[in-house]
Design a protein around this nucleic acid. Sequence first.
RNA 1: GGAGGGGUGGCCGAGCGGUCAAUGGCAGCAGACUGUAAAUCUGCCGACGGAAGUCUACGAAAGUUCGAAUCUUUCCCCCUCCA
Length: 394
Amino acid sequence: MYKNFSFNILQQSKNLKTNERLGKIVTPHGEIQTPAFIFCGTKASVKGISPYQLKETNTQIILSNTYHLFSYPGSAYIKARGGLHKFSGWNGPMFTDSGGFQIFSLGHGSVADEIKGRRSGISTLAKIDEEGATFKSYWDGSVQLLTPEKSIEVQHELGADLIVSFDECTPYHIDKKYTEKSMERSHRWEKRSLNEFIKRNNGTQALYGIVQGGIYPDFRKRSAEFVSSHPFFATAIGGTLGSTKEQMYEVVEMAMNGLDIRRPIHLLGIGGISDIFRGVKLGIDTFDCVHPTRIARHGGALVKAAYRDHNLREHINLKKAEYRNDDNPIEIDCDCPTCAIFSRAYLHYLLKAKELLALQAIAIHNIRFMNKLMEEIRRGIADGNLTEVESKWC
RNA sequence: GGAGGGGUGGCCGAGCGGUCAAUGGCAGCAGACUGUAAAUCUGCCGACGGAAGUCUACGAAAGUUCGAAUCUUUCCCCCUCCA
C-alpha cells in the first residue's frame, strides 16, 4: 500500500533506559532523516520564509493545514495549480494536518489554551456529530462541513506526501467519559479516513493514524493499539497532552505503550527544546510546532543553554532594552545566515522600527537552530552521547 | 492693527463644575506564546511606596465655589483668517 514510502530504523538506543532511535523516512519528494522537526507552513507558506531560505537552512520537511486551505483557496484550486509542492515552490517532503485540531480553535480564544488545559470550557462554534464537524470558516464566515472523507479528499488534492487521519482533538477540560466517547469517535473517523485513503491511493501519499485518549493511561494504550492494528503508514500522537510538562511526558509515554514502534512516530504540536529531547528519548521520530516560527515574529530568538538570560527561557526576547547596544550575533557559534551578518542590536532596532526584515531574520535563525538541533540529536544518537548533546542545548 | 481658535501627563488627543491622577492611541517597560483565525495577545506606564496611601499635577497668576483640567479676570505663548 505504501510502495513509494519506507521507514528504516538505522539505529536503536544503546541506552537501556531510553528509546531514542535514528531513522529514515523515504517519500516521493525525498528522504527525512529522523529525529526530525517539521516546520509549520499552515497556509502553504512558512510565514515570511521562502522555500529557498528553508533549503538554505537545511530544512527537511514542512507542513500545511487542511482546514485552512480547505476554507481558502480550496484544494481543487491548488490541485489545478499542480498541487501543493508545485504551487508553493517547496519540492521537498510535505505533510498536511487533517484539520481535526482546528475544529477546537473555531470558538473564541486560543486553541492552545483549550488543549493545554489553561482555559476551561469547550469551544462552541464547531458542532461535532458522527458525520463530522460543522464550523464557520475563518476566512469568510461561511458554514462548512469537514468529514473524514472530505479531509482525505482535500489532502489528496493538496498532494502532500504524508497525510493525517481526521480526528477529534479532545481538550483537557473535559471529563473522562467524554474523552472516551470522543476517542472512540476518532477511531471510527480514522477508519473512515483509512477507507477513503485506500480508495484514492495512487502511491503518492502515506497516511498517519492518530492516538487520542486524553490523559488516561488505559485510553492512550487502547488508542495506540487501535492505530497499530490498522494499516496506517505511521502514527501521530495527538489530543491534549495534559496541563504541565511532566504530565505531557507521561501522556506520551502512555501512548508509546501500545504502539507499533516499527512505524514512524510523530508527536503533534510539540517543539520546545527540552520537550524534543524528552520526546526523542521516549522514541518519537518527528515533531512539528509553530513555536520556533511564531516566537520569531514576536522577537524571540532561540538560544542554546550558554546564551540564556536569567529567566532560563529557551529563547531571548530581542525587543528587550538590554539588547539595544549588544553588537554580538544572536549566537556567536551559530551557522545561520542571520547570525553571519546581523547583530542583536540591529535586530532589536529592526523590531522597534517595525521593519519586516526583523521577523524574517529571526525566523531564519530559529529554523536553522531547530534543524541544527535535530542534526546534533541525530549525531548524538549515532555516537551514543545524546546526554552530552542535551546539556549543550538545554 | 482687527477677527477667531488653541495651550492637558514623553508625543498625539479626549474631557469642559464633583464619580479625574485624568478616556483613547502612540512611544516606553515587562510577560505570554508548543498539530498558527498570531508581524499576535496580556499587564504596567506622574512621583515616592511592597501595599494601604501620601504628594505634585491639565500654560502662569489671582478669583468664584463646600468643590475647578472644566467658570471669571489678567498675563504669557502658539495657530488661522482679514488688513
